[in-house]
């Protein structure tokens, strides 16, 4: 561990999942797990239908979702409904001064908290419901979890946010608390060792 003590040198951002990334890369083709790059994210608390909410929506260029779901802002931010007055905004493109602008929009009538270090995202691809059904009681099948849905619940014994990133449930993003990330990653690797929870054509209504 040799680091130049010079304060001039940039600090390296780390997600602590390097070992897991190698193991994820070695998974067979049925499911894939990808550690998404670290992203700035903010917890937004604001009363819906308030002036502050309107100001936030103007800033984002997008309505705040009002049901368990996520939307994408024109600038590429993911806005996730967490509760009646709570959203998580993942600012993947990392806009300069975004937090300050957000704070201005809510000034005095809400709260903005930088939670960038609080969570990390893992993207499950392929037969994602077949893998995740081993650890969650939530129905992640595409009929119940279409693109745009966002749910919160347990995966095994960790609370995660599930984002449906595709129509057919083949891309599900898990937003995981940082301190639980290795547990979740270990769990995913272990779960992937065994056959998936159900075969791919599961539950397609065959006639109607």
């Amino acid at each position: 561990m040799t680091v130049d003590v010079s304060t001039k040198e940039l600090l390296v951002a780390r997600d602590g999942l390097d070992v897991h990334k190698e193991k994820f890369a070695a998974l067979n083709a049925q499911v894939g797990v990808e550690v998404l790059p670290l992203a700035h994210q903010y917890n937004l608390r604001v009363s819906p239908n308030s002036d502050s909410a309107v100001a936030v929506e103007a800033l984002l260029g997008s309505a705040l979702p009002t049901s368990p779901s996520w939307v994408s802002s024109p600038a590429g931010q993911t806005i996730i409904w967490l509760g009646p007055d709570e959203w998580l905004i993942i600012d993947t493109p990392h806009h300069t001064d975004f937090e300050a602008s957000l704070r201005d929009a809510t000034k005095g009538h809400g709260a903005v908290v930088d939670q960038s270090g609080q969570r990390i995202s893992l993207l499950i691809t392929g037969d994602a419901p077949g893998l995740l059904a081993k650890g969650t009681a939530l129905n992640l099948h595409s009929t119940a979890f279409p693109r745009g849905a966002a749910l919160q619940g347990f995966l095994a014994r960790a609370v995660v946010i599930y984002l449906s990133r595709s129509e057919n449930s083949s891309r599900i993003e898990l937003v995981v608390r940082t301190s639980f990330a290795r547990y979740v990653a270990d769990w995913l690797l272990d779960a992937a060792l065994d056959p998936l929870a159900y075969p791919t054509p599961y539950g397609e209504r065959t006639c109607h």
């Binding site: 917890n43 709260a111 939670q115 609080q118 940082t178």
Partner: peptide, 9 residues
């Protein structure tokens, strides 16, 4: 409003 920042820092 309350928000956890335990793992942020």
């Amino acid at each position: 409003y309350l928000s956890s920042a335990t793992e942020h820092l």
